[in-house]
Design a binder for these strands. Structure first.
Length: 569
RNA sequence: GCGCCACUAGCUCAACGGAUAGAGUACCUGACUACGAAUCAGUAGGUUGCGCGUUCGAAUCGCGCGUGGCGCACCA
């Protein structure tokens, strides 16, 4: 599809040749109010070199520039306001979407480049709770966005399947657990043992030492501990898979922390050989004071490993295995310091590719009565949230008497879509408090609103018997698209690919979410203001094509968020 | 104490250093005899936490302060 900004930049450059096309393009903006043009070029920066007042420059440009794609040029103060020929614009977007179809919004920016996205990474033997939704859903969307940008993407679920917590679990199971319980309700039982452990550890601190010892034995490969750990791991994984299936999420690799346990000695040797390791209070550390950071603890005084050690091993392993161009870690902002230390250590080890590793943090989800905590059982299970959302959707469908023969599937699409959409609607860095009425709200800027818009467009196209395959594009007369609402919709569709690129650059799925909302809102206004199934065949054909383009854009946008778009709901 | 992050309408949030700071929600009001009312439209709502600076121009950049969150050695 033709890049209008680039076209404008070329035309401006031909008149004032003091900036590069890229610089001009970066200066071109989109006015908030479309009465000030489809695009605008502020002339302040030219003033110095041209020795003229900005408004004068703008006026001269408005006078001087001529091109077929311009309907009108105006100058308001220092701005050159550019109005694109509507017919040209609408034709451009409609044919662009038709040509691209399912891949409208995609590009080849990342062709030939490999990206790893690490996300979700729940702790085995703990329930999958609402706090895990962020990494899971944000990471999944980032992977989809990078894929759309043409990158070769590898999805890794770095399971939290190792560490002292398993020592705790083993101790707790031995003391208070039973084979019987574990068989019947594996996750709930494991959670109760974990909670019990922390209750008891409050009274008896020696339990913590016992847990560390149990983990040390696990790390040494002792049979009994290993068997228990494997048991816990298998039970948890099958539970996680159930939730991933509901969300429609999968991974290329489930190599968690335990996978790297046998790769750590080599890392330790390397750190030692490079003179980075230092003993302190019986533990091995890397001193980072000169970089303004607390020292990083590499191994505990009992010799067992820590999180950061495994992350170092994992990064090196991944570089060797995948030779990535970029490795994206979608992990909570609480771990900012950890990632700063970790990346600094990789740098100190002499790995230039350390800068290709990026931590993408996100804010905290808390409960109204405090931080979410597995230890004291104050959690909301993600599966319960998804089920409730589906249930509520089903009630609404039945109430509205929707014409669909697959109520359950639609309810699942919309209910789960609502939860995902809600999660991806805001900037990922924002903290928020979990509230049932918020996650179950289907009015306003929500997933169901966007999906409804898609279904509505589908309905009009269905009623008209519109078939894009049989449409002769040349026969469509876009001069029938005259309304302001139609034109605003066309502009938003045109800009969808730019939103995808920006979302990728900023690792920010909400950029796509918001753009999809904008398209949906514009379509609804268009739908309301104008009669699509017009008497005049030519008018109808043009409007149907625009509707089809809107529907396709919404569908593609939702797909990048990991949400399906129903034909009816 | 030190570090990182956040702070915009009653609430939840937008806004490539650019024009009169925008949506949703809640309150009030209007529109289903055209294609789906899970919709659309209107009224009202602001000293962008505070101060100083940089700039032709600051919600946005810098410095200082305030409030809140998170982190800071054997958890992950």
């Amino acid at each position: 599809m033709i890049q209008i900004k680039n076209e404008i930049a070329k035309i401006i450059k031909s008149a004032v040749d003091i900036l590069s096309i890229e610089e001009i393009e970066a200066m071109i903006e989109i006015p908030q109010d479309s009465s000030m043009g489809d695009y605008a070029f502020p002339c302040f920066k030219l003033a110095g070199q041209l020795h003229k007042a900005p408004p004068l420059i703008a006026a001269e440009l408005a006078e001087k520039l001529k091109a077929d794609i311009f309907a009108k040029l105006e100058n308001v103060n220092a701005y050159l306001n550019i109005f694109i020929d509507k017919k040209y614009f609408v034709k451009l977007i409609s044919s662009g979407v038709v040509a691209a179809g399912e891949s409208f919004g995609n590009s080849d920016l990342g062709a030939g480049r490999k990206v790893i996205v690490e996300y979700s990474a729940p702790n085995i033997a703990k329930p999958f709770h609402i706090g895990h939704i962020r990494s899971t859903v944000i990471g999944n969307s980032i992977h989809l966005i990078y894929k759309a940008l043409g990158y070769d993407v590898v999805r890794i679920n770095h399971l939290g399947d190792y560490g002292t917590q398993f020592g705790k679990m083993i101790v707790a199971y031995r003391r208070w657990g039973s084979e019987e319980e574990l068989k019947q309700e594996p996750i709930k039982s494991l959670l109760s043992y974990y909670v019990k452990f922390h209750e008891e550890a409050e009274k008896d601190a020696s339990l913590e030492d016992e847990a560390r010892a149990a983990f040390a034995r696990l790390e040494h490969g002792e049979k009994e501990e290993t068997e228990l750990w494997q048991r816990f791991r298998a039970e948890s994984l099958s539970e996680f898979r159930r939730v991933y299936d509901m969300l429609g999420i999968s991974f290329d690799s489930y190599t968690g922390e335990s996978f790297y346990s046998d790769k750590m000695p080599a890392v330790l040797d390397e750190l030692r050989a490079k003179g980075l390791l230092k003993e302190s209070q019986g533990a091995q550390i890397v001193e980072l004071e000169e970089f303004g950071m607390a020292p990083a603890l590499i191994t505990k005084s009992d010799g067992s490993s820590l999180y950061i050690t495994r992350d170092l091993a994992a990064a090196i392993y991944r570089k060797n295995t995948y030779d990535f161009d970029k490795c994206i870690y979608v992990v909570a902002s609480q771990q900012n310091l950890h990632f700063q230390q970790w990346i600094k250590i990789l740098e100190l080890m002499g790995y230039g590719w350390a800068t290709d590793c990026v931590h993408i943090p996100f804010g905290l989800i808390s409960m109204a009565d405090g931080t979410m905590s597995t230890r004291n059982g104050r959690v909301v299970f993600l599966e319960d949230v998804l089920n409730k959302a589906v249930e509520k959707t089903k009630e609404i469908i039945l109430e509205k008497n929707v014409n669909t023969d697959c109520i359950d599937e639609t309810a699942s699409m919309v209910g789960i879509g609502a939860v995902i959409f809600n999660e991806l609607a805001n900037s990922r860095i924002k903290d928020y408090v979990f509230k049932w009425d918020k996650v179950l709200n289907f009015d306003g800027e929500t997933g169901p609103y966007v999906q409804y818009t898609h279904a509505r467009a589908a309905s009009v196209l269905r009623n008209a018997g519109f078939d894009i395959e049989k449409l002769d594009l040349e026969s469509v007369d876009f001069s029938y698209i005259t309304g302001e609402a139609a034109y605003e919709l066309a502009k938003l569709i045109y800009r969808f690919p730019e939103a995808v690129i920006r979302a990728g650059e900023e690792y920010e799925p909400s950029v796509v979410t918001r753009h999809v909302i904008e398209i949906a809102r514009a379509f609804n206004k268009f739908y309301h203001d104008e009669h699509i199934l017009a008497e005049d065949e030519n008018e109808k054909r043009a409007k149907l094509l625009l509707s089809w383009a809107a529907k396709q854009s919404i569908k593609n946008g939702l797909a990048l968020l990991g949400i399906r778009a129903p034909e009816r709901m």
